[in-house]
Simulated scan of single mutants.
Amino acid sequence: MEREKIVAIANDFLINEFEVDGDEISNDAHFKKTLGLDSLDYIDLVVVIESNFGIKLGEADFKDIITFNDFYSAIENKIAQKNA
């Protein structure tokens, strides 16, 4: 899956499911601060990622996510691992 498609799908569910202001989403924006998610929201996020991309991001994956760019890269890498 191309990165542009990953970004489009991810941004769509972040805006619609998690009510993030689309204007606040940028590659360099701080992922966790922008989303303001609690621990239950992260569970929902994992479920939404799995339903949209067929992959599962675990707790260790989220520790490495600082920016939205990191988030997209984590999804991209998991998809690549799945398809390898």
Rank of each mutant, 00 (worst) to 15 (best):
Y42K: 00
K5E: 15
S51N: 12
T34M: 10
A8L: 12
L35N: 11
K78H: 08
H30V: 14
S39Q: 08
D12K: 14
I66F: 11
I66S: 09
T67V: 04
A84H: 08
T67Q: 05
D23Y: 10
N52L: 08
E50T: 05
N52R: 08
T67N: 04
K5Y: 12
E76W: 00
N77W: 09
T34H: 05
L37D: 06
G58D: 14
I66E: 15
F53A: 03
G36T: 03
L57E: 02
E76P: 04
I25H: 06
N77Q: 14
A74V: 04
A60L: 06
Y72G: 03
L35F: 04
R3E: 14
I43V: 13
E2N: 14
L35D: 02
A60C: 03
S39W: 01
L40P: 00
L45K: 02
F53L: 06
V20G: 00
I55F: 07
E17L: 03
E19C: 07
L35E: 02
A29V: 13
H30S: 13
I65D: 00
V20S: 01
R3S: 10
E24F: 07
I25P: 04
I43R: 06
D61N: 12
I43E: 05
I43A: 05
I6D: 02
M1C: 14
I75F: 06
N16C: 05
E19D: 12
E59G: 12
G54F: 07
D38N: 14
E50Y: 09
V20P: 01
A8N: 14
T67S: 15
A74Y: 03
R3L: 15
L45S: 00
K78N: 04
L14A: 06
K78M: 02
T67Y: 00
A74F: 09
D44H: 13
F18D: 07
S26V: 02
H30P: 08
I49M: 02
V46P: 00
F71E: 00
V7N: 08
H30F: 10
V20K: 01
L35H: 00
E4L: 11
A8K: 15
T34A: 14
I15S: 04
K63S: 15
T67R: 05
N11G: 11
K56E: 14
V46A: 07
V46I: 13
Y72A: 04
D21T: 06
A10Y: 04
A84M: 10
I66R: 09
N83A: 11
F68G: 01
L14S: 04
L40T: 06
E4F: 10
L45C: 02
T34W: 01
N16P: 04
H30D: 15
I75L: 06
L40D: 05
